[in-house]
């Protein structure tokens, strides 16, 4: 049995796909998500083998979602969409398969067969999403709500036990996105093992007598620079 997650913003579509998948007898549906932000958390939490992913969803499309997940965590992706205008791009994102709505049960059987083969193949053969497009916004969970924080408003990110804290000029939240993904998809750089800073928000680099160093942001927040990353920080800011 393969574990699957269904991600689609339309409930009727999720229901019919769940029914069809269960009918194959080879897929167990772990859950359903109605948008990309919920899906991000669910993927990390449930670690499905495969996601059936709608492309057109509110704010963050299925294609964008794939780019937000670390390679090690990324499950197999089967895109499900009503319009085939996305087909080429979907295969660029290295999906395993591509289904058109309304889903034809016979066509779905072939997809499941392909998934079965993939599973028996060695791990190296597993295709991984290539991070192509830069990240424009970071999906965050705040108090009782989810929201999207534009990348240029973010001052820094900090990895904590509860998740990655995103600190913006006006608002902050916690994201399911890994620091590594954000680092590779934005101009942010590491100043500390747990910190990622947006260079556009740095106002000064302050050296203390003890030899430690801090970055001050424009809005006055302070974050540590570790010895190991000091060289990188100086290089980044073109300092000697």
């Amino acid at each position: 049995m393969l574990n699957a997650l269904i991600i689609d913003d339309e409930m009727p579509a999720r229901e019919v796909l769940r029914e069809l998948l269960q009918a194959t007898g080879e897929i167990e549906v772990l859950g359903e998500c109605a948008n990309a932000i919920d899906a991000l958390g669910a993927i990390y939490r449930l670690r499905p083998d495969v996601v059936f992913l709608d492309i057109q969803m509110p704010r963050i499309s299925g294609l964008e979602l794939v780019g937000m997940i670390e390679a090690e965590v990324l499950p197999h992706v089967v895109f499900v969409t009503a319009f085939d205008e996305f087909a080429l791009q979907a295969f660029d994102e290295q999906a395993i398969d591509y289904l058109l709505k309304p889903v034809d049960p016979a066509r779905l059987t072939r997809t499941v067969a392909r998934l079965r083969q993939m599973r028996s193949a060695p791990a190296a053969a597993r295709v991984l999403a290539s991070a192509t497009t830069p990240l424009r916004q970071i999906p965050c969970i705040g108090h009782n709500r989810v929201f999207l924080l534009p990348v240029d408003e973010v001052e820094y990110l900090c990895s904590e036990t509860t998740g990655v804290r995103v600190v913006g000029v006006r608002q902050s939240g916690v994201t399911e996105l890994a620091l590594k993904i954000i680092e590779s998809r934005t101009a942010f750089f590491r100043c500390h093992r747990q910190y990622l800073v947006n260079p556009d928000h740095i106002s000064e680099l302050v050296f203390a007598e003890t030899g430690t160093c801090e970055i001050h942001t424009r809005s006055g927040k302070r974050l540590p620079v570790s010895r190991r990353h000091l060289r990188d920080v100086k290089d980044f800011l073109s300092l000697p």
């Binding site: 009727p12 019919v16 009503a82 709505k101």
Partner: peptide, 17 residues
């Protein structure tokens, strides 16, 4: 056309339940 596609998909999904 988009509306028609979406509508047909919705109907296809609902028709059984």
């Amino acid at each position: 056309p988009h509306f028609l596609f979406n509508a047909l998909n919705t109907i296809a999904a609902i028709i059984r339940t």
